[in-house]
């Protein structure tokens, strides 16, 4: 049993009178792909936003543990530090690339922090010292590596906004990987992809998991992606966890089926009581 990388404990998120997430607890483990699924409006992106610091959780604890043993309390950290120090990266449901910058520039921006340090707050940079030049070269090499892995190397100098949709999604993932994360959070990476592209995405995610020792936390609706590559699935409905286990377990769990497909009218009350609604 590999070690836990992210521990979510009793996470609750309230917006005024609306409880978006209610007492959610689960774990994501190192070297695994954990999928977060559920019907629309279940609160999945809200969980992401809490983990990555864009929302401050109303209650609960989010602990990120590095392989070195360092622990980070995410619920207390500002968003940019969650990426920089805790090494959690994410992509967005609506792609947020820097459309007016080239593909290469997008990947270089992702390496901002190591480059800033090396540039000595720009002083080394202005005088083009060796420290900075070698740091810049390293950053370029990282960018080129990811471009080649994603098959985007030929479009390195094109504006990101010109790329076709599938390529933009891959670029966003590459950009997130350029920050060297231990945990990669992907918000519906397969949205809008055709079956071939979804397969390529599966291969890509498995490569990332294997070669980079990066745990992946994934929100997805496309079951072909979820079932094929996840090691662990957590199911949400109305902000509450209704199932947690391996893909096979979750697939046959009656509670999950009820959430997605509904139950006969007679059983509604029973199911609701069980789930705790």
């Amino acid at each position: 049993m590999s070690q836990t990388i992210l521990k979510v404990e009793h996470l609750t998120m309230r917006f005024g009178g609306l409880t978006a997430i209610n007492n959610l607890s689960f774990e994501a483990r190192r070297g695994e792909i954990t999928a977060l699924i559920g019907p629309n409006g279940a609160g999945k992106t809200t969980v992401f936003n809490c983990i990555t610091g864009f929302y401050k959780p109303t209650e609960g604890m989010l602990t990120l543990t590095h392989p070195t043993g360092n622990e980070f309390l995410l619920e207390r950290m500002p968003d940019f530090q969650i990426n920089w120090k805790a090494k959690v990266a994410r992509t967005f449901q609506n792609i947020r690339l820097f459309q007016g910058m080239t593909v290469l520039e997008n990947l270089l921006v992702a390496q901002h922090n190591p480059l800033m340090v090396a540039s000595g707050f720009s002083l080394h940079g202005i005088f083009s010292t060796k420290t900075y030049i070698s740091a810049e070269k390293l950053a370029m090499d990282t960018a080129v590596y990811w471009l080649e892995t994603m098959g985007l190397i030929d479009r390195a100098d094109d504006p990101a906004g010109d790329l076709p949709y599938g390529d933009q999604r891959r670029l966003e993932i590459a950009r997130a990987m350029c920050t060297g994360p231990y945990l990669l959070c992907l918000d519906e990476p397969a949205a809008g992809l055709n079956p071939k592209e979804s397969n390529d995405l599966n291969d890509l995610l498995m490569t990332i998991r294997k070669d980079h020792d990066t745990a992946i936390l994934l929100i997805e609706h496309d079951m072909s992606v979820v079932m094929k590559i996840s090691d662990h699935v957590v199911v949400l409905d109305y902000g509450v966890k209704i199932s947690d286990g391996t893909p096979d377990f979750v697939r046959t769990d009656p509670k999950v089926i009820a959430a997605y497909l509904g139950v006969p009218d007679e059983e509604v009350a029973a199911v609701e009581a069980e789930v705790g609604l």
């Binding site: 968003d79 940019f80 947020r96 459309q99 921006v109 800033m116 540039s119």
Partner: peptide
């Protein structure tokens, strides 16, 4: 000069999408 350095690139990235910048560790 600054445009070619990380600080200038961060400025332009900020203009493009601030939230994406924060998700990439930029203060």
């Amino acid at each position: 000069k600054l445009r070619r350095l990380p600080v200038g690139r961060a400025w332009e990235a900020l203009r493009e999408d601030e939230i994406a910048c924060r998700s990439l560790g930029i203060n």
